[in-house]
Amino acid sequence: MNRVMAVAVLSAVTLLSGCAQQGLYGTSYSRSQVGQAQTVQYGTVQSVTAVRIEGRDDGVVGSGTGAIVGGIAGNQIGGGSGRTLATVVGAVAGGLIGQRVEKAATGRQGQEITLRLDSGRVLSVVQEVENGQFFNPGDRIRVLGQGRSLKVTY
């Protein structure tokens, strides 16, 4: 049974490492945005504040994987009805832990960019930091928009 536990833990790590969020960069696009017209505005960065973008905690991968691993671990304890109870408790605890691990693993470094458009309008946009590079006050930027979604790029 130790081999089964090792396979379950390895599977959990593999699944959790694959649950990274799609980038929230100024240069990343969802499939639904491809081919869609966007407005383009130009402006200047006024200020930049480092922020933390929360990770996802929808529980699909984290709690599911955690529940499986916890259930297998719990099943290794005791016998009879004690084993059943340990399996259930292990699955519930593993699911809760897995959800927290997923949220921590998918959190991202972000930046709140306050900018003044050439039109005079002042905006604030939060997006993920790309390649460790923050925008700087005074940078000339483009603001790409589609509906309520805005991206700041050079």
Score class of each variant (00 low, 15 high):
T106R: 06
T39E: 14
Q146K: 10
I68N: 01
G70S: 02
Y42E: 13
G80A: 15
I141P: 00
G98P: 03
I53N: 02
A37E: 10
S28I: 07
G71W: 01
E130R: 02
R121D: 07
R31G: 07
E54R: 14
R3V: 10
E54K: 15
V7Y: 11
A93P: 04
N2F: 11
R56S: 01
Y29W: 15
V9N: 04
R142Y: 02
S149N: 08
R3S: 11
V89N: 04
A67Y: 00
G95C: 05
Q41W: 14
A20V: 12
G82W: 09
E112C: 09
L85R: 12
L15R: 12
L144H: 01
S124I: 13
V125E: 06
A20M: 14
A67M: 03
V13A: 10
G62M: 09
A12F: 10
V7C: 08
V4E: 09
T27K: 05
T39A: 15
Q76G: 08
A12R: 04
V9T: 09
T49Q: 06
A73W: 09
G79A: 12
G26R: 03
G95K: 00
L117C: 08
G110Q: 00
R116N: 04
G80N: 15
G120Q: 03
Q111H: 08
S32D: 13
L117N: 07
G95F: 01
Q36Y: 12
Q109I: 06
G94L: 04
V61G: 01
R142V: 00
D139F: 06
V40L: 08
V13F: 12
A12E: 05
T27Q: 09
Y25D: 01
L144P: 00
L123Q: 07
V122N: 04
F134E: 01
Q36L: 13
L24M: 13
I113Y: 03
V143Y: 08
L123M: 11
A91T: 00
V69I: 07
I113N: 00
G107S: 15
L150S: 12
T84N: 09
A86S: 08
P137R: 06
M5I: 15
G43A: 13
G23M: 04
G74I: 00
A20K: 14
T14H: 13
G98S: 09
A8K: 03
G78C: 14
Q22D: 02
L144Q: 01
G79N: 11
V4G: 10
R52F: 14
L24Y: 07
M1N: 12
Q38R: 13
V69H: 03
S149Q: 07
I77P: 05
L123W: 07
Q21A: 10
N75T: 13
R140A: 15
D58I: 00
M1W: 12
